[in-house]
Design a protein around this nucleic acid. Sequence first.
DNA 1: GGGATTTTTGCTCATGTGAGCGAATATCGG
DNA 2: CCGATATTCGCTCACATGAGCAAAAATCCC
Lengths: 324, 324
Amino acid sequence: MDRATDMSDTDELLSIRAAELYYEENQTQDEIGVILRLTRWKVGRLLASAKANGFIRIEIVHPRARRLPIERRLRESTGLTDAIVVSSAGVSSEVELQSRTAQAAADFLTSLRPIPRTLGISWGRTLHDVSLHLKQGWAPGVNVVQINGGVSLHQRTGTAASTAVTIAHKADGSATLLPSPAVFERLETKQAMEADRAVAGVLDLARNAQAYLFSAGQADANSALVDSGFLTVEQIDDLVSRGAVGDVVGRYIDANGRIVDPELNERTVGIQIDQLRRAPLTIAVISGNDKHAIARAVVRNGLCTVLVTDEDTANALLQEKDTL
Amino acid sequence: MDRATDMSDTDELLSIRAAELYYEENQTQDEIGVILRLTRWKVGRLLASAKANGFIRIEIVHPRARRLPIERRLRESTGLTDAIVVSSAGVSSEVELQSRTAQAAADFLTSLRPIPRTLGISWGRTLHDVSLHLKQGWAPGVNVVQINGGVSLHQRTGTAASTAVTIAHKADGSATLLPSPAVFERLETKQAMEADRAVAGVLDLARNAQAYLFSAGQADANSALVDSGFLTVEQIDDLVSRGAVGDVVGRYIDANGRIVDPELNERTVGIQIDQLRRAPLTIAVISGNDKHAIARAVVRNGLCTVLVTDEDTANALLQEKDTL
DNA sequence: GGGATTTTTGCTCATGTGAGCGAATATCGG
DNA sequence: CCGATATTCGCTCACATGAGCAAAAATCCC
């Protein structure tokens, strides 16, 4: 990697001295010229070269700070409609970064125009976070529909349902829950469930939502599907060995966006992956160092049109593009 | 600690959005005004408040970068004639930071006016580093005089002498070495040594140097005096238990700048601490996290008029001043 | 060494930006 | 509810700064 600008050694040193006086001491280029015995134009050029060589680092340190240049590069290289990248400047923990990402997703939802009448959502820690960051009255009435099953087997039933209810409540809208486990053990049970008028109606609503909001899980033992008891660690290991990188709306996909285990997929309740591919507005919220692989799979295979993520994940995505 | 400027929550968020467009996307305040539906004056004010609240962090990332505001605060709060503080932005190791400090000391020496005809120096890793960073021809002839004994007992004799010789050589000047151990075991031997015409002459020269350049060592087992075999770890432990924080020109002092062990001090060859206190130009080069205590002792007790150090050490010094 | 080419320099000019100041607006206390 | 006070706003003006350009200097190459 070469220097942006060729510079003599003494000029480089001078540019640093000038930068110190300019940025730290708020001196004018004129004044700096007097101090360093240079014309003010020379000082201007030195400062420009210091910037060009990357010696001047400007960071916006704030929980709501985004990285617009990275967002732009992501949009350009992936064809995403929109990309929201939160800055990791000054974060001390992964949790904090995920909170920032959730906040950004909430901000994005709030500023979304036109406001979707029906919003399909998945569930999980990330979306729950988003729901908490939304402000009361963020939208004037939205019907929130669950797009995949989530009634937990041994946890309190709250998690999944409360996310939908909270988002809807804060929008002065209504929530339509999908009263079903994420995965059935037997295909027949699942089919029977789907045949039920009420459930079928919810699924129909889910399939016709104007917008989707979902997260994704890394394929490992910490998955929400394991936590909730729908899958065992052994099952996950098996999926991983068959190429799974993570799950989207409860369905495990590989790096190419393909369903890893069609039989398992059949037993999973909710909209299909292809539904996301065809939808005009699908917002994925993915943050954390262990989610780079699944984020890549989601973005590369057109599963979302909008990605809300953190700086590190975004950079990882861009990195791959470069080395293609 | 309060906010610099009171700001409503929405204004704070706007100031971040404005900052992103201004600093990351190089938009003009006018253009930002159009995007955010604000007047350009409002944008200017938002940017100003973002700065005032510390959301904008500007760092100069370069091995030669200094921290002028810290230097100024150090000068003001300690009465130092000059303070050179190197930035720790982007350093990955303590060694790198010490190298930066040594470079800064070399830079300071090079730009020193008037050029001292005789320069008294101590020895050690730090000063050796400084000698290596000096450029050939940094000064037109300087007589470099060793101000404390340093002929090692069991290492190759090089270390101490080579520092002096290198500094002198690069200035097209001459080096006057003090051919003596740092510490004698018996007072009589030391006195006999000092009585020798040659040695007495060197000491006389040392006492009359126009400027002094020295470093300082933390009082612990890694001390150069232990390395060189002049003191044992047990002796250091004893000194520490009696309040020693470190050594300057081979002499151990406590936080108040007092000699900790007068008897040991008597057996130590070189100029006295008081000589430094009286000299008009004494340059101390001290860097590293374990040298905060000795740096404090040196500065607080007027042992140097110029301090060359790193950002962290400087901040530690300022911290204490605040809590006085 | 000297002419050609590139780089650097000093400058004009147009634009961007912060200080300062009334006018408008919001906030508060009675 | 209304007058008093504080805050914010829009604007003028002066200054700081980057773009662009011709002259000067340095470098290259025969």
